[in-house]
Write a protein that binds this DNA or RNA. Structure first.
Length: 463
RNA sequence: GGUCCCUUCGUCUAUCGGUUAGGACACAUGGUUUUCAUCCAUGAAAGAGGGGUUCGAUUCCCCUAGGGACCGCCA
């Protein structure tokens, strides 16, 4: 048995979106499940559109979500000579031929086909034509001699048997007239050279597979296994594209989605294992298989992402969460100062219970992070004379507390409730507003103890 | 237009001929709670339509409808 090898082969012509990330994830998962290798191949042969910044974004995204490629990145543009060599071999074997049709000629044919409403397919004009007839002023392309008769069957690991008539596959170009290889050639040669055993990709590549299989056969190479996974759709039901909003990992990272949560979400989008919803990295490797991949496209559900994120926020190790939060704040908000770090760390336990995202934690911890509190007019109106008296008396009572913990504070609040003939809200709300600038937030005892006596008094006495 | 693929609650999905069609998210209601949340309980919610095959179809086959992908000297 050959060692399993998979690859993810994006082109760096735009930011990687989460559909691509899922494809990468499935490839990675399958290879790890099989104790195989996973490679990253950058298909940067489109010189016009490929950009280094996108390549870097792709690599960074995969690292962020925890997908590691084995070995160095395989840069396709450095292998072009291999592709050309294969094209020449095909030519020598008589399995490819030079096509001297000009661009204009092809365009004309396409136009005519469109007018007649018949599908365009290259007419194989030069397939059997003698080269001596070649026009001198046209640089030829090299076309692959596709099968004309019969049918081809793709035994897809996800889609099952897919059968097509060979005559629907045209004699596609493998080498342009500037001698550069085209996608189907390059991909086939690279997959062969890299010893890829399983090609897992979006099902928008399904038709290409029939072209690539023919190249393998023509070269007498072992044809790899294919698994075409359904695409991810937007909420409108269309193929997810790079231009869609909230489609890159950074979009999720900056609102405080955890990489493990997104990984878990993506795993379950189009794949399932019984009723299980939460998968650790190890579990996902252990259980991943092709049988669990569905055949129909799936839509993105942001609520689900939030919900899984919430689960991870509440369940991962708290120190881990804290360092993630620190990094998050530093990257997208501002660096948390040294003196606030400890205070915040101790408060994480109750802050995280009110959060779906790291951004929520950030928002809820503003009262801790900022030394001054801004109270809006509406909230200020809620602080009437009676509230002020309560606050004043509260200050007096806490001044001589030693521990300033819940057990000390609770009796004080209770005594104020009965003294001023009010309810908990009558005491808790004014305190909360003055201390945090908001009517909502953590429990009042959490606020008090997290702030500490000095800061509490400081804030309260200003009212 | 041609080729190929898909179709279970709003969404992600379970079911691999016999189930009161299950779970999760979202939603609704109630409870816990000082607020907002959390948490707990309960509820509403699905096999696109039509034919077959079968004792029995969500499950197998066909047709129709709807949706999608591809049809580049892009990848």
């Amino acid at each position: 048995m050959k060692k399993v090898a998979t690859r993810f082969a994006p082109s760096p012509t735009g930011p990687l979106h989460i559909g691509g990330v899922r494809t990468a994830l499935f490839n990675w998962l399958f290879s790890k499940n099989q104790n195989g290798s996973f490679y990253l191949r950058i298909e940067d042969t489109d010189k016009e559109r490929s950009k280094d910044e996108y390549k870097d974004q792709i690599i960074k995204s995969l690292i962020w979500i925890g997908i590691e490629n084995d070995g160095d990145e395989y840069i396709q543009s450095t292998k072009i000579q291999n592709h050309i060599k294969v094209a020449k071999q095909l030519l020598d074997k008589g399995l490819a031929y030079k096509c001297y049709c000009s661009n204009e000629e092809i365009e004309e044919q396409k136009k005519r086909a469109k007018q007649k409403k018949i599908p365009y397919i290259y007419d194989r004009k030069w397939r059997d034509k003698n080269e001596t007839d070649a026009p001198k002023d046209v640089k030829p392309t090299i076309r692959f001699k596709s099968k004309i008769e019969g049918t081809s069957i793709l035994k897809d690991l996800v889609q099952g048997k897919v059968e097509i008539q060979n005559n629907t596959i045209e004699d596609f170009i493998i080498l342009r007239n500037d001698e550069s290889p085209t996608y189907n050639l390059s991909a086939s040669v690279d997959d062969h050279d890299m010893n890829i055993t399983h090609i897992i990709r979006g099902d928008d590549h399904k038709i290409n597979t029939f072209k690539q299989m023919q190249i393998y056969q023509a070269m007498n190479w072992e044809v790899p296994n294919f698994a075409h996974i359904p695409l991810i759709h937007t909420s409108e039901g269309k193929k997810l594209s790079k231009r869609d909003k909230a489609s890159t990992l950074d979009d999720y990272s900056k609102i405080g989605i955890l990489p493990e949560a997104l990984r878990n979400y993506l795993l379950r989008l189009g794949w399932s294992y019984k009723d299980k919803e939460i998968f650790s990295k190890e579990e996902s490797i252990k259980y991943f298989n092709f049988e669990g991949i569905g055949k129909s496209p799936s839509k993105l559900d942001f609520n689900r992402i939030l919900s899984i994120n919430e689960h991870y926020i509440k369940n991962i190790d708290e120190n881990d969460l804290f360092s993630k939060f620190q990094k998050y704040a530093q990257t997208y908000k501002y660096k948390i100062s040294e003196d606030k770090t400890n205070q915040l760390k101790q408060s994480l336990g109750f802050l995280k219970n009110k959060a779906k995202t790291l951004e929520d934690i950030f928002k809820n911890s503003q009262y801790l992070l900022n030394d001054t509190v801004k109270i809006n007019q509406d909230d200020l109106k809620l602080i009437d004379e009676k509230s002020k008296k309560i606050i004043k008396e509260f200050i007096e009572k806490i001044l001589n507390l030693n521990n300033f913990d819940r057990s000390e504070l609770e009796p004080i609040v209770k005594s104020l409730i009965s003294k001023f003939d009010t309810n908990f809200k009558g005491v808790g709300q004014p305190l909360r507003i003055v201390l945090t600038g908001s009517r909502f937030g953590p429990g009042i005892y959490d606020i008090l103890t997290s702030l500490g006596k000095v800061q509490v008094v400081e804030r309260l006495k200003n009212i």
